[in-house]
């Protein structure tokens, strides 16, 4: 049995694309043949199930498993696209303290035993209990950041929390591996000096860049349909997420979609986007 890696997708700030990223990243790992689980830590505000398109199949949730009211096998929902992917939905109604540290640890360890290679933890926004629980057991952290001041500052805050409260930090082990993922990137606005560039954000946060996801209308279409964005055929956003997964798995892939498309004379004359 290969070792399990726990990957937290976090940001501090809300609305930057954590759940979109968790869904696509986990789907990408599964598409590449890795047995993967994606766990929603946002107790009270369950949304990963909607983005994954499995909301009608939720019976039991994470808190049921923690409280031993259901088994992991009962609660895990098999993804419709991949045999290798399972979703563990968050609880919708219970109190925020339902995520007890010992309980979370036990469930994650049970998933290790089940042979999951990757466990992707979709963190809630903020720096409260749920967000801390999502990062506590992480081996890797994907810091989802928008090229915008409040998101960059919040990412820096969450990095501080990661370096203080993760098990790896507390036990003095090798620190959690940090990866910067820029989302909602608009190359054209970067070129005109209206938006922070990926180099700017990397310089500010001082962590390695895992990828850049372009701003895209396809993300809304994807969530409307309950389909992770990585499945959107021929869309830059899907290809960018595929690159992210490949880089995470150790492949060296150059950045794409980070420069504005130059419009040719004909395009300019005859319009079109």
């Amino acid at each position: 049995m290969s070792e399990t890696r726990i990957v937290v997708v976090t940001s501090g700030k809300g609305g930057v694309g954590k759940t979109t990223t968790s869904a696509s990243f986990a789907s990408g790992l599964a598409l590449r043949g890795h047995k993967t689980a994606v766990v929603d830590f946002d107790v009270g505000l369950r949304n990963l199930d909607l983005i994954m398109g499995c909301e009608r199949r939720v019976v039991y949730d994470f808190v049921n498993v923690i409280n031993q009211e259901a088994s992991l096998n009962q609660a895990l929902i098999k993804d419709k696209h991949s045999e290798n992917l399972f979703v563990l939905p968050a609880s919708q109604t219970r109190d925020k303290d339902a995520l007890k540290e010992e309980g979370v640890e036990r469930v994650l360890n049970d998933m290790r035993t089940m042979g999951f290679e990757y466990i992707v933890c979709d963190s809630p926004a903020g720096i409260e209990h749920g967000a801390v629980m999502a990062l506590t057991f992480a081996d890797d952290a994907i810091i989802v950041t928008n090229p915008e001041v409040s998101s960059v500052r919040d990412s820096d805050r969450i990095l501080g929390i990661l370096q203080a409260k993760s098990r790896r930090a507390k036990e003095g082990r090798e620190p959690v591996k940090e990866h910067l993922l820029l989302t909602r990137y608009a190359p054209k606005r970067v070129d005109t000096g209206e938006m922070l560039s990926h180099e700017d954000v990397r310089d500010l946060l001082k962590i390695p860049l895992l990828g850049v996801i372009p701003e895209s209308e396809a993300v809304l279409h994807a969530s409307n349909q309950g389909q992770p964005a990585i499945h959107m055929q021929d869309q830059p956003v899907a290809q960018a997420y595929q690159d992210v997964v490949a880089r995470f798995l150790g492949e060296e892939i150059p950045l794409r979609f980070t420069t504005a498309e130059k419009r040719g004379l004909l395009q300019r004359l005859f319009g079109g986007k």
């Binding site: 915008e148 000096g193 209206e194």
Partner: peptide
């Protein structure tokens, strides 16, 4: 419009 540098 070049406010990104200010942000940085």
């Amino acid at each position: 419009s070049q406010s990104a540098a200010v942000a940085k």
